[in-house]
């Protein structure tokens, strides 16, 4: 896993400044949540790290090596999408093994690795299934297994729990949180859900209008909000949250 450094990232679309001078460091093995309302620039920031957006200004570096203009396929980044984005012309196993196939790894080895990850995520029995026949939670596990299969430098999660029902979300949050912690993954976790960010992330960057308002641990964000916006945005109904990662 790698250390991610975003230095003064700006991204402009015509007259709109989507990301305005974002600087952020994610340490090796750390999960940083990017939290904010819709349109605050969090997904653009994530897409810039993935290589799908080239910043108007600023740099992105993995372990000190600048990757700002490196194409997405050469960044070794695992991406988990809100809408799963599974390949529905492939089985679950083929989905998970896809990245390894692109790296020229032979079929037996990649199937072994895929089965190992599917077992780890408790969906080993579904390896030969068509992913479209799985439930939302199961599909999201496949998406996570697929992203982890390539042993990425960095794992990017774009609102992965949105769309799941509350009960499943709670269970998945716990399981995925523990898994990411065990695997010592460096990750950027984009969400608009304050509770999810508090539970899943080591640190949180709260964004508003393309800028970072505050970066800190969930406790710092919750107990000492730097701005009125952060204070209002992270105000939760349940103050005694079980902050699982700290």
């Amino acid at each position: 896993m790698a250390r991610i450094t975003l230095d003064s990232i700006r991204k402009r679309y015509g007259e709109t400044m989507a990301v305005d001078g974002v600087s952020l460091t994610v340490d090796d093995g750390e999960i940083v949540g990017v939290l904010g309302p819709s349109g605050c620039g969090k997904t653009t920031t994530l897409r810039t790290v993935a290589g799908f957006e080239t910043p108007t200004a600023g740099t992105v570096a993995f372990d000190g090596r600048e990757v700002t203009n490196v194409p997405p396929e050469d960044r070794n980044v695992g991406l988990v999408f809100q809408e799963y984005a599974l390949f529905d012309n492939m089985t679950v196993r083929e989905n998970v093994a896809f990245g390894l196939k692109m790296r020229g790894i032979e079929k037996t080895a990649r199937d072994e690795r895929a089965d190992e990850l599917l077992d780890l995520l408790d969906i080993g029995a579904m390896a030969d299934r068509d992913p479209t026949t799985l439930s939302g939670g199961q599909q999201q596990r496949v998406g996570l297994a697929r992203a982890l299969a390539i042993e990425p430098n960095v794992l990017l999660l774009d609102e992965p729990m949105t769309g799941l029902d509350a009960k499943l979300k709670a269970r998945l949050r716990e399981e995925v949180g523990e898994l990411l912690s065990d695997l010592d993954v460096t990750g950027l976790y984009v969400t608009h859900d304050q509770e999810e960010a508090m539970l899943m992330c080591d640190r949180i960057a709260v964004m508003k209008g393309g800028r970072i308002e505050q970066v800190g641990t969930p406790r710092e964000i919750y107990e000492s909000p730097a701005t009125e916006f952060v204070s209002e945005f992270v105000a939760l109904d349940a103050p005694d949250l079980p902050f699982v990662r700290w």
Binding site: P72, N76, L79, Y84, F98, G99, M102
Partner: peptide
């Protein structure tokens, strides 16, 4: 077309041609 699936393929190391062949073409 599911553009997210295409981006997923690219992030997993597929070149634009491989993305077209394995993800776009079947769609």
């Amino acid at each position: 077309i599911d553009h997210a699936a295409e981006e997923a393929a690219q992030s997993l190391g597929a070149t634009p041609w491989q993305t077209f062949r394995h993800v776009t073409l079947p769609q």
